[in-house]
């Protein structure tokens, strides 16, 4: 089983970490370079963790478990106005990132108000491309209950956050509800506020575990990190993408950040060592996010094999 971890350390000799991970059959999911420091999101076989830990210690780096690595989470606010940003939404998004998730912030076009709040088909489809969503609501329980219509049609697990205590039975369409983080006009600093952020991360972790468990019942033909590696190798133009993460991982596939029409055939033609083409084991379709390519790996019951 692959263990998700985050390595933070100096730039000097970090290649040793990359080489070790590749030798062990693991994957480098993301590489963030900040002047002399580097942050690597890594998937490494759990039985070989000790080797990586020893190397991280030798390089004076830090190795921590990143339970959300390899997943994409949408942080949804009613709009991107000053009422919801920057404090709550940015705190939650940043906290999820620190635990390894790829987080996208999404402001709805008409999500404001109590009676007038609405979500459109495009926004719903875009959120459904993620592995989980966090909806950030305010301080009044009547409004939080009423705004259930915003996430009722979303098929990925939705974690709802808000200020007051609300019984789970009052929000039947939410995966979980995390209270004590409604609309605030300051950054999360106090221990209680940080504790609430931890609870959101735990809740998102549980939501992702639920998705993982349902995938395990009918496993994917191949794993998304393997697809990512193959695309990175065989479609070299992806490294010229301006996006900080040219291939984003999901639990059921990847999003390749290249124009769909120009590169869909190249992505379909990506071939694995077993001789199978990506187009045969996955659906390649346009993503709702910009003009990107969305790769959704088919399950074993559809293709009849796993490799």
């Amino acid at each position: 089983m692959l263990e998700p971890v985050m390595f933070t350390g100096g730039l000097y000799k970090h290649d040793l970490v990359v080489e070790l991970v590749e030798d062990l059959g693991g994957y480098i999911l993301q590489r963030n370079l900040t002047q002399t420091e580097i942050i690597l999101l890594i998937l490494v076989p759990s039985e070989d963790m000790a080797l990586l830990q020893a190397l991280a210690k030798e390089l004076r780096g830090e190795l921590v478990r990143a339970p959300l690595a390899g997943t994409e989470v949408a942080v949804v606010t009613p709009t991107l106005a000053i009422h919801h940003l920057p404090h709550t939404a940015c705190d939650i998004a940043e906290y999820l990132r620190r635990h390894g998730s790829k987080t996208n912030m999404l402001g709805l076009a008409r999500g404001v108000g109590r009676e007038i709040a609405q979500i459109n088909e495009y926004e719903t489809a875009l959120i459904n491309e993620h592995d989980a969503a966090v909806f950030i609501f305010g301080n009044f329980q009547e409004c939080i209950k009423k705004k259930e219509s915003l996430y009722r049609n979303i098929s990925v697990p939705v974690v709802v956050t808000g200020g007051p205590q609300i019984e789970a039975k009052d929000l039947p369409y939410a995966f979980e509800y995390v209270p004590a983080i409604g609309r605030v006009a300051h950054r999360a600093r106090k221990a209680t506020e940080i504790g609430t952020l931890d609870r959101i991360v735990d809740s998102v972790g549980r939501a992702l575990d639920k998705t993982r468990a349902s995938i395990a019942k009918d496993p994917l033909t191949t794993s998304p990190p393997r697809v990512m590696d193959a695309v990175r190798e065989q479609v070299p133009d992806v490294q010229f993408s301006y996006s900080p993460l040219p291939i984003a991982l999901n639990l059921t596939g990847v999003r390749v950040k290249l124009p769909y029409n120009a590169y869909k055939d190249a992505v379909k033609a990506v071939t694995f060592d077993e001789g199978v083409k990506l187009g045969e084991i996955a659906t390649i379709k346009p993503s709702r996010m910009k003009d990107y390519i969305l790769v959704r790996i088919l399950s074993a019951s559809e293709t009849g094999f796993v490799f």
Partner: peptide
């Protein structure tokens, strides 16, 4: 605040103070 919204009232008080102070 109307209804059972003691929490909302308390939080709005903090919010108003924060914004006026800012």
């Amino acid at each position: 605040v109307t209804g059972q919204e003691e929490f909302g009232a308390k939080k709005y008080r903090e919010l108003i103070m924060d914004i006026l102070q800012d």
